[in-house]
Design a protein around this nucleic acid. Sequence first.
DNA 1: TTTGCTGCAAATAGTTTGCAGAGAC
DNA 2: GTCTCTGCAAACTATTTGCAGCAAA
Lengths: 146, 146
Amino acid sequence: MADSQQRLEAIIARLKENDCKLTPQRLAVAAILAESEGHPSVEKIYEQLKDDFPTMSLATVYRNVMLIKSLGEALELAFPDGSNRYDGNKPYPHPHAICIHCKTIIDLDLAGLQDLTKEVADETGFEIVTHRMDFFGVCSACRGRK
Amino acid sequence: MADSQQRLEAIIARLKENDCKLTPQRLAVAAILAESEGHPSVEKIYEQLKDDFPTMSLATVYRNVMLIKSLGEALELAFPDGSNRYDGNKPYPHPHAICIHCKTIIDLDLAGLQDLTKEVADETGFEIVTHRMDFFGVCSACRGRK
DNA sequence: TTTGCTGCAAATAGTTTGCAGAGAC
DNA sequence: GTCTCTGCAAACTATTTGCAGCAAA
């Protein structure tokens, strides 16, 4: 989609801004993050790139994902099972629905979220900076399959 | 508080139910989880127990925390930075507010949560089983300190 | 040319496991 | 007495780092 193309350009712009060199490996990682098809893990990104870059090292993927994350252009989603998945397409916090069977992750857009954040701020006296909201369940496809 | 005493008994009951032996180490871990003062990490639990059980092994803490968690009597809170903290006092999913400076974790009770879960179910077709909701920010104490 | 990036391999951190002896029931 | 649990150490996994050569600007 055109959307991911725009995201890629945004990430590249941010990299240039910070005087980072645009190596082929880095651009490839950025491209996958920009698309974020299925919210890939580092391992997934690595596997996707191995074909195009046979000498590609896992460490390089880690370094570039971390770099892009630290520039605020990718969202890290850490899960209790220790797996980390990334979203460079919507790099701001947003709710997800995760299927506990097929591990599919769906982005959500919830109306009540703004109010909820305010409620938290009022209740706790916290200055809320960010949040993490995941709903775990069984997607309709997996439910049919069972 | 009396609350944590009750929780401890509930955990012990569950352990017996599952034919688990009540070793002193296991009871000590259960007691700390029942209280869950500050939502302790495995490391924290270990440190608290080292005085009473000088030979206590970290592995034993891990094993017992995992056991109690798997019996549904403790909630695991995994964070992006890789740290895990546990709540055996309220072992069901509930929202938290986490101070990004002092790492304090506060339990929340949000009115809008039920509606939100329903909204997600309707929007996605998922059968929601559980959720994870954390708000990160700066607590009033840390804000004053700055 | 300069500086940062990559690939490799080794290091690290957090967690898990195998095993033999100890202890709960 | 039986069978699970514990402590220790080793194994493991995911991630990070040091270094020498390579490549982008």
